[in-house]
């Protein structure tokens, strides 16, 4: 359980990172918090020639509200995000999700960008970013591009980010003003802090008349990538939303997912848990939105 030899670059700037990635030609890898990469190195599942450390690049850390979005820089620690008043206030769904991510020891090192880059199909931060229609900013020597979460996840631990690109930041849109937003996050795992067997994230936006103007339901752990249940969203959007309407749309969940079986859970179990967690998350998100309306 010792990593193979590699060269180590402690990068001082993003320029330096993209140059090293270009030079590495697919054999260079970025280390941020290391909470996924270190085990991969130790088990020699990853044997890069060069490891590029981005932990000391100031421009890669921070959380800011910028116009109609919240921008989280890639190397922001999960613990920092969890404790952030800006995130509690503007992105409550993300705050709820991060509470399920690992343990204090891993959240103190693990980063938001690292979770998004590794893209484990059961991990909470990618699921939340997908559910909230976030997008990531990527940079290589060729320049900067942005990718929407809908186009980002290609397969288990595979994303649209190329080997020569660094993930700079993730951009979460703020809900429109004058609306009431409710969110909920639920998961089933073997122990608190473990990877989810299945996780569900829900977001419901009600307009001034109580009509559901936006609904998003994301399920993690029940397919090769985190999935939006768009069929259900289409049924619920634009009408009055209540527990009966949610119940009536639930069939879409199982129909959308193709879960696998492994030592943690079978496919049937995952499908059933996904349905139950989806229902619970949507009803809690609705309650949350209505509560916000009462408090106005």
């Amino acid at each position: 359980m010792k990593a193979a030899k590699f060269d180590y670059i402690q990068a001082g700037s993003v320029d330096e990172v993209v140059d090293a990635l270009a030079k590495g030609d697919g054999e260079a890898i970025i280390i941020a918090g290391g909470q996924t990469l270190m085990p991969m190195l130790s088990m020699r599942l990853a044997r890069p020639e060069t490891v590029i450390d981005i932990n000391r690049i100031p421009e890669l850390s921070g959380i800011a509200v910028d116009g109609d979005e919240v921008v989280i820089k890639a190397c922001t620690r999960q613990a920092t995000a969890l404790a952030s008043a800006e995130i509690q206030r503007h992105l409550p769904l993300l705050a709820k999700a991060i509470a399920y991510v690992g343990h204090q020891q891993t959240r103190n090192r693990g980063t938001i960008g690292g979770s998004l880059s590794h893209a484990d199909p059961a991990s909470e931060i990618p699921l939340t970013a997908l559910t909230m229609d976030a997008r990531v900013r990527l940079r290589s020597v060729a320049g900067i591009r942005e990718v929407a979460m809908a186009d980002y996840f290609l397969g288990p631990m595979m994303t649209a980010r190329a080997d020569n690109e660094i993930l700079l930041s993730v951009h979460f849109p703020l809900p429109p003003t004058g609306s009431r937003t409710g969110t909920a996050f639920h998961e089933v795992s073997e122990r608190r802090g473990d990877f989810a067997v299945v996780a569900a994230a829900a977001l419901i936006v009600l307009d001034g008349n109580g009509v559901c103007s936006r609904v998003a339901l994301g399920i993690g752990g029940a397919d090769g990538v985190p999935k939006r249940i768009t069929g259900l969203e289409d049924k619920l959007r634009g009408g009055k939303i209540d527990p009966d309407a949610i119940q009536a749309a639930m069939g879409e969940v199982a129909a959308t997912l193709a879960p696998g079986s492994d030592q943690h859970a079978g496919a049937d179990y995952r499908r059933r848990v996904a349905g139950k967690l989806a229902e619970r998350a949507l009803i809690d998100a609705l309650t949350d939105a209505l509560l916000e309306a009462e408090n106005e």
């Binding site: 180590y8 270190m38 020891q105």
Partner: peptide, 29 residues
């Protein structure tokens, strides 16, 4: 475990707990 599961190697880094097996020694400079 040497891969970040068991917590036996926990230490404090600048006052906060982390797993020492999930960090490189060079990073502690």
């Amino acid at each position: 475990c040497e891969h970040g599961v068991c917590g036996a190697c926990s230490i404090l880094l600048d006052g906060v707990p982390i797993r020492a097996c999930l960090m490189l020694a060079v990073q502690a400079d």
